[in-house]
Amino acid sequence: MSFWRAIAVGALVAAAPALLAGEIPSDARRSGYAFMGPDTRAMQDDDTANPGMLFVLDGEALWTKKTGSAEKACADCHGDARSSMKGVAARYPAFDKALARPFTLDQRINLCRANHQRAAPLPYESRDLLALSAFVAHQSRGVAITAGDDPELKPFVAQGRDLFMQREGQLNLACTNCHDDNFDKRLAGAPITQAQPTGYPLYRLEWQTLGSLERRLRSCMSGVRAQAYDYGAPELVALELYLMSRARGLPMETPAVRP
């Protein structure tokens, strides 16, 4: 009997590292910035060369523009974004008590438009929505990410983690297979990063525009030939929440530039 028990214990010990793989220790977490070449870094660092700043400028103009049937601007309630919005994006997606689920910064902006400005929601990935969320998130540049700290978010973080670990698509790959197990290596010449969402919405040179984390997640999903979730789907929000909680402590970079 003890022989079989020894084999069972041995098998468990051998399986343990595989079970634990997937969590990057907090001191080893690195932003996508650390994986880029010097040219792209220089573009992000210089606010007059970073194309994401064009959207931040647009967002600043929208912040003070009255809209909707309530004839209210964001600034009429929130005042100067430099103080009122500082650190806000670092804790999104956040839990909404009324809806009893987490929602993203983009969804929060549209909730505000519906409830307070009485304006039509901005479509996902539209220029105005990206500009507003870039402007708001830009106020948190340098602030450490704290998303997912709310205890009510726990089941949603767990759901996001499950989705991150779950294989999907014709290529049968999970997010973790690249971003936990194989970062620092290359995929078709491009560096594989740790998937730390520190700079969203960010300017991707490939897109030639600003894009949200949801757009990024959806393009990874089509990359593994899976059916991507729709914009705003609870699964995407949960994934976004898990990724932000996984990046806990890293500083925000919005608007980041990525290749």
Binding site: D46, D47, T48, A49, M53, L54, F55, L57, D58
Partner: peptide, 8 residues
């Protein structure tokens, strides 16, 4: 449209 200019 928004423009960013850098002149010393």
């Amino acid at each position: 449209m928004a423009a960013l200019i850098n002149v010393p």
